[in-house]
Simulated assay, not measured.
Amino acid sequence: MITASDLGVRFRRNRGSRRSFKDLFARGVRRARPGDFWALRNISFTVQPGEAIGVVGRNGQGKSTLLKLVAGVLFPDEGRVQVHGGVAPLIEITGGFVGDLTVRDNVQLTAGLHGLGKREIAARFDSIIEFAGAGDVIDTPFKHLSSGMKVRVAFAVISQLDEPVLLVDEVLAVGDKAFRAKCYQRIEELLAEGKTLFLVSHNERDLRRFCTRGLYLNKGALVLDGPIDDVLAQYAEDHPV
């Protein structure tokens, strides 16, 4: 189960400005400073185990920020989020992977960080490499891979984890048709196993295929939480093509 209560995340517009020690020390103070803006605010929802959630909204509306909060890689300035069980995040193509390490080393490192033991990693290693089609680059540094191959390796590893929550942020938009078909099949298998899915996508077909419920974000606010068809209809009405 995932429970979010009055979540709020505040950023600074001027990314070039450096925070002073005083700024860092006073981080707990909720008063906004000049140049601050709320990427998300007053976000509350509950997700039951096994639900498939589509997160909808234009670019820059807080979708990826929300996934990072659920993943635990970003902490809220207001409210809290509780996740019962581990999370398998596929939020950024290279997120969690070390560029100078080989594909082999990255697979072992990432799987190990998510709690798999040496025997479990060894048992799943060949399947991961085969799924990614990475046999020819297994000893190549990750940073030298194409963007498409990075996605292949990342998805192959994350989808083999035992974590109950899968976070996917636009990754299905990258890669060739054959690989996307493999990803779709794997996601359907994970959902059949009772995994919880958070999917950020602009592709209505993908959202309708996998998700039964949607969260519609606009300007950092939760506009609608409901059946995915209703959420997509409201989004389309608010932002006609």
Rank of each mutant, 00 (worst) to 15 (best):
L224G: 05
D136Y: 01
Q108R: 14
W38E: 04
R27H: 12
S127D: 14
F210H: 02
D100T: 15
A111Y: 01
L191N: 06
E130R: 10
S201C: 10
V47A: 06
I121N: 00
Q61I: 14
S5A: 15
A181F: 06
K150C: 08
L215Q: 05
T102A: 09
R12A: 13
L116A: 12
L7W: 01
G99F: 06
A178N: 08
L166S: 04
G28T: 08
G8S: 09
R119W: 08
L217A: 01
V29M: 15
L7S: 02
L199W: 01
E170T: 09
A4R: 01
M1I: 07
A122T: 14
R33A: 10
R58V: 15
D105F: 04
R208Y: 10
F75Q: 08
N14R: 14
L24I: 05
A192T: 11
I138W: 07
I91F: 05
P240S: 10
G79K: 05
V83D: 08
F125Q: 01
K63A: 02
R19G: 10
D162T: 10
R30Q: 15
E170A: 05
V157Y: 00
Q48G: 10
I53T: 03
K22W: 15
I138N: 06
Y235E: 03
E163F: 07
N106A: 07
A88Q: 04
R58L: 14
V55P: 00
I158W: 04
N203S: 14
R119S: 13
P89W: 01
L145G: 00
D136K: 09
I158T: 03
S127R: 15
I53Q: 02
G194R: 08
L215N: 02
L7T: 03
L24E: 13
S127H: 12
M149A: 06
L190D: 02
R209K: 08
V153L: 01
Q82H: 14
D229N: 13
A32H: 09
L145Q: 01
T196E: 02
P89K: 03
G214Y: 04
R13F: 09
A32V: 12
D169C: 12
L116Y: 04
A111T: 04
A236I: 08
N218G: 11
F142M: 04
A32T: 07
F155Y: 06
G175Q: 00
Q48R: 14
F11D: 00
G62P: 01
R104A: 05
R15G: 12
I2Q: 07
H144C: 11
L90F: 11
A88H: 03
E170R: 07
R30G: 12
D105C: 12
Y235G: 01
N218F: 07
M1P: 04
P49I: 06
V29S: 15
L116S: 06
T65R: 05
F21W: 15
G117D: 14
G54C: 03
M149F: 04
G28R: 09
T140R: 11
E78D: 13
W38D: 03
N42Q: 11
D169P: 02
A156W: 00
L145E: 00
D162C: 11
I2D: 01
I91M: 09
K150P: 01
R186I: 08
V174R: 00
L172M: 06
N218R: 13
H144G: 15
K68A: 05
D162W: 08
L24A: 14
P49C: 10
H144M: 12
F198G: 00
V157E: 01
D136I: 06
F97I: 05
R124W: 03
